[in-house]
Design a protein around this nucleic acid. Sequence first.
DNA 1: AACAATTGAGAGCACTGCTCTTGACTTTGC
DNA 2: GCAAAGTCAAGAGCAGTGCTCTCAATTGTT
Lengths: 247, 247
Amino acid sequence: MPATDAATPAPRTPRERARAQTIADIVRLGREHLAVHGAAALSLRAVARDLGVVSSAVYRYVQNRDELLTLLLIDAYGELGDEVDAAVGRVAEADFAGRFYALGRAVRGWAVREPARYALLFGSPVPGYRAPAERTTGPGTRVIYSLMAIFDAAWRAGAVRVEPASVAAGPPAVIPPPLARDLTSIREELGLGLPDGILARGALVWTSLFGAISFEVFGQYGENTFAAKDVLFEHHLQVLAGIAGLE
Amino acid sequence: MPATDAATPAPRTPRERARAQTIADIVRLGREHLAVHGAAALSLRAVARDLGVVSSAVYRYVQNRDELLTLLLIDAYGELGDEVDAAVGRVAEADFAGRFYALGRAVRGWAVREPARYALLFGSPVPGYRAPAERTTGPGTRVIYSLMAIFDAAWRAGAVRVEPASVAAGPPAVIPPPLARDLTSIREELGLGLPDGILARGALVWTSLFGAISFEVFGQYGENTFAAKDVLFEHHLQVLAGIAGLE
DNA sequence: AACAATTGAGAGCACTGCTCTTGACTTTGC
DNA sequence: GCAAAGTCAAGAGCAGTGCTCTCAATTGTT
């Protein structure tokens, strides 16, 4: 079944078909340029050259550079989301920690394979470009939804250690009212059953996961600091699973 | 005491003084452009205009755009390092958790105040630009050195909870030989006394800290997901302190 | 076949990084 | 004191960018 997007209905006339095909070609070429040269070096003229067409012709199909960036953003979010879903789906539903590991490894694998596209999604924002929320929010939230779904399923199955005291030796980290309010609206929006403490820890696990991946992909670990980055990542995953309270 | 860099000796002749002053002006203007428009939009021509000089004249003082970027990188690392050192120094030496909190808050404070410069240091790499390691490694490692120094001092003072089982309910995260090798060379290079388990957790805390800050600064939390970002960060700091084994 | 919508090409504007030459100025060495 | 050496700003120019506009040709529809 072709994933027909609501915003772009299936093309009926041959013209619409050709147009959709050209846009798809532009996105494909843009993706290649993005992967090789990075987001800031993405050039509509270069894409036009590869397409065998003069630069102004591309503007018939794509409003401007920013829109191409948006298309590539959605494209990348979609691919990452698909890979994560597939990886998580390959693990038994009841193996919550296994699903968490699968998610983490899938994200890292894609990020290492596609550093420039990962940078577009999770790196510093491209100057002068603001992603239109109405088009990117949906695709962009798939991974965090998937992660939270794992935590929530584990919680409902009673497979989450509650006592946060097992993490911090001192008293459990307190959840002040302002944070509790944020967590409440998140819980309602995502339809989760997680209590504040676990939810807040989930947010930390989320940012920590991407922090570890970003450090590796963006070369923030020095040149030769860590030779065994995959082993380091596995270790981090283990600790993060512990923070989330997964067995 | 003026921080005289080894690579740039103190100017003797009036010419050298004038030259150093011009370069300082260029860096200052570049810093302003960087803060306002971002790294990728940093333009030597725009800096030249602000300097009241034709573009080619700037090339007398700065080899090319990349070198200006390097100067701004060092400049930013220096400012961040200074602020972190000052913040940490304001807390009693024996208050290890307090020093850790101070470090985290200082980094976040600077990052929120200087998002574009933070992005230059810890965001996605600028396409086509590679920071020269011999000039940036030193300034770039100050924060992690400072962080590790806190952990190490806490360890030597016996203020670090050893048993990692308190974090992950299961067996303590295992350190495979390849990772152990990396950790050994890090321990030797930094002259630390931390055992593998704590050191590996320290690395996770390090990346997690910057992951949380990057998510906030780069707008990866959705628009209205967290209203109380400072409270969320404080919570994360608490949990991270627990992971590091600090009281 | 005729019409109209769509498309591609080309010119052009304003911007970028960067190089090279030219003329003026300043410092230095004799 | 004066000429040589060194330094500097300016300007022209090249190749690239995003983007707009006009014009002619193609193409799908009626």
